[in-house]
Simulated assay, not measured.
Amino acid sequence: MTVTELELRETLAAVLNRPTREIAGDANLVLLGISSLEIMRLVSRWRRQKLPVSFEALVTEPTLDQWLAHLNAAA
């Protein structure tokens, strides 16, 4: 299962309570307000969908572009 940029952007917009257009591909998601708890919840959700994502990878490079690359590499 691959994740599209639009799907990820919509997921993050819901978590961050921001319009999708405000989430630039290279913006630091932590600075936009995502917490480690929210990241863990997303990891759990994606793992239930059979995506073997790494919490550490998401925390290390917290941008939409990097997350998209990681999610699709994991798929």
Rank of each mutant, 00 (worst) to 15 (best):
A14F: 08
N28G: 13
T60C: 02
V15Q: 12
R48H: 11
P19F: 03
S54I: 06
E22V: 02
L58N: 12
L37S: 01
A13L: 12
W67T: 06
W67M: 14
A27D: 15
E7N: 04
N17T: 14
P52C: 01
A57L: 00
E61R: 01
H70K: 00
N28K: 09
N28P: 11
S44N: 15
F55P: 00
R18W: 08
L58Q: 10
I39D: 07
A75D: 08
Q49I: 00
D26W: 01
L29H: 05
S35H: 14
T11H: 13
R18C: 08
A24F: 04
L12I: 04
I39V: 11
A73S: 08
A27V: 09
V43G: 01
L64T: 02
L68I: 13
L29T: 11
D65K: 07
W46L: 09
I23A: 11
R47M: 09
R48Q: 07
T4N: 02
L58C: 07
T20A: 15
V53W: 02
S35V: 14
R41F: 01
L42S: 10
L6V: 15
L42H: 04
M1N: 04
R21F: 05
E5K: 04
T2E: 13
A13S: 14
I23F: 11
G33Q: 03
E38I: 11
T60G: 08
R47W: 09
L37T: 09
S36P: 10
V43K: 02
K50H: 11
T60R: 13
A24S: 14
N17C: 09
L71A: 02
L29F: 07
V53G: 02
